[in-house]
Amino acid sequence: MASSEKINIPQQPPMVMIDRLIKADEAETITALVVSADNVFVENGYLREPGLIENMAQTAAAGMGAKSSTPESKPRKGYIGALKNLKIDKLPAVGEEIITRVMVVNNVLNATIIEAEVTCHDEVIARGELKIFLEEKAPDPPETLAEQPDPLMYRYNREVFYSFNKETGFTQKVDYQYSANQQIIRQGWDAAEDRLDAVRQEIAAGILSPIAYHMERCLMELSILASYMKLSKWRIRRHLKPSGYHKLTPELRSKYAAVFGISVNELDNIDPMDQPQKGT
């Protein structure tokens, strides 16, 4: 039992029916158990049938536990749904070691069908097919989302978050934005970067003017730029084209520069390394 804590299964003693994990990979899982006298399923010196079936099911669970992404993650609970072609030739006696081999035959939705084979002294003593239903995986509660290994984009301002669970009701906490949320914020910036790249290419192709570039760099849209410039949208649209851009008056150029927060000379610069601007 000493090594049983390394095996990642949902069962707790005294229901643990495996001692050690010998092998766990995609194809099969092998475990070993020395039948001890204090085993709950031992009767008259022999491990009874329910013990053997538990042993098979737990071997399957140990395999899944070992394959789950993080060793600490909680294993999913499973229920034995059906037994097929179960054949038990012999019951193992106390003190004997049994080796159990389990192969996953099929995964259907939440059910896993496994084929198990129990050997004792190199002799197959039991075999059968089990259908195990896995409990729906509960989604991680919001509290743990922040502790996910994803790097946080920023850690310089904590915000207030609310959460709810049945026991404590609603609670407030102050923490950094969850990593999942930071991810969706990042997606917004990534998209802005892609748009900026697209504009760069269109400028190189002579379709758009630097105004379009600075507009995108400042995360503006036509309507926003038009209202900052106090010009109509169709006039701005002209300036977005190279032909309209070259006809810009010095007054309008300096007005554009002021709106974009740059100097007039910088208006022509299109820096390939520029990122979308995060405010000023």
């Binding site: 207030v160 978050f161 609310y162 709810f164 609603f170 949320n181 969706i184 997606q187 998209a191």
Partner: peptide
């Protein structure tokens, strides 16, 4: 991107999570 926009509105600046549903529950 569209999905991301919905989520940004739900979770980003100042909703305290879940598009104000937590605050309302409180």
């Amino acid at each position: 991107y569209y999905l991301g926009q919905v989520l940004r509105m739900e979770e980003e600046i100042g909703t305290a999570g879940a598009g104000f549903r937590f605050i309302y529950g409180a």
